[in-house]
Design a protein around this nucleic acid. Sequence first.
DNA 1: TAGATTGTTAATCGATTAACAATC
DNA 2: TAGATTGTTAATCGATTAACAATC
Lengths: 206, 206
Amino acid sequence: MEKNQVPDIVVARLPLYLQTLKTLENEGAYNTSSKDLGQKLGISAAQIRKDLSHFGEFGKQGTGYSIKYLTECLEEILHVNKTWDMALIGVGFLGHAIVNFQGFYNQGFRIKCVFDSDPNKIGQIVAGFEIMDIKNLEATIKENRIKVAMITVHAENAQEVTEKLINAGVKSILNYAPIVLKVPTGIQVQYINPIIELQHMTYYLE
Amino acid sequence: MEKNQVPDIVVARLPLYLQTLKTLENEGAYNTSSKDLGQKLGISAAQIRKDLSHFGEFGKQGTGYSIKYLTECLEEILHVNKTWDMALIGVGFLGHAIVNFQGFYNQGFRIKCVFDSDPNKIGQIVAGFEIMDIKNLEATIKENRIKVAMITVHAENAQEVTEKLINAGVKSILNYAPIVLKVPTGIQVQYINPIIELQHMTYYLE
DNA sequence: TAGATTGTTAATCGATTAACAATC
DNA sequence: TAGATTGTTAATCGATTAACAATC
């Protein structure tokens, strides 16, 4: 497979390039350069050119990159030139905030269904979604062929939920619970963990 | 300064070690090893020992590490053996969720004050905090000597808020807005951005 | 003692950068 | 044309790993 040749650390930067391109487009710009992107992102121009070179040639000498064209290319590379249906598991305060988040739209994602195990929550409507019983998780995810999920349950339940998700065919998990998930090869997991980020920063404080 | 010698990529892993140690402690364990921690975190035992060796010797041959002692050492290294007061700016759905988040407690952090610019929100009480007018941000943060802040405003306003925070003495910023902040040397910024993480993962999907 | 595991060294591996020919 | 910027190469830089003496 060609994509195995691209280091994951390079792949991880592509969404940042895409984000910056979209900001530039919103500002009304049509063209940019590796130098410009690098300054905005705080990384070197050489690194951006090197990263992009793994996937093809997207620029022109002398004039740089067309924002529109490079955006389209990156969206295709990252497979966000389509919209991925997502499941959300755990409708506490955080899950509630995510369900109400407007920012997925036009970035390749939308929430399709939300689950909780609390009988008091099941059946309630949140931002237009009826909270479903977690007992129906596997059937519903299979039925809708959902490949992407977000976990916002307590740490104690995150591994169990993960296993159900994988059973149901989910391949990519964004985990907000503060625990490292055990998953088989081929399943992607990323973590969102404010405590980790805060503790990283306080190292540098007095 | 001694700490400049430690690569940031090593520092970034320390909070993960701490998280795993706390999970183990909750499970009732007293000792662990680099092998055990590595398996739980999906990294090599050698890397964990190498990382820790930047800061001292915390283990014993044959028996590994005392969970209690290594926890204390890491908390001291990361400066979370005290509690950092934090400011939160932007009380939308996400800000609301963060204010209600119970997980900061005992990890070195607590929210001290919350701000918004919306006249309809100012003065309201959220999880026991009165939402303050962002006009009072600089005075209040100076007064309370707050060094850590979380930004949950819209991307358009994040840079402006950042500059106010830095003016007021904030040194570490956890930014939830999807934009790279421009900050002077010596100011720490970390990002929380689910779209970036999701797009990273869909690269590997069909 | 025998087995386990540390801290550290040196080797390996991989990522970043500087430089430049090509060319818009 | 002159200036700017690409894509790529080779060199540099830094991170990870394997191995092992030390020792609990």
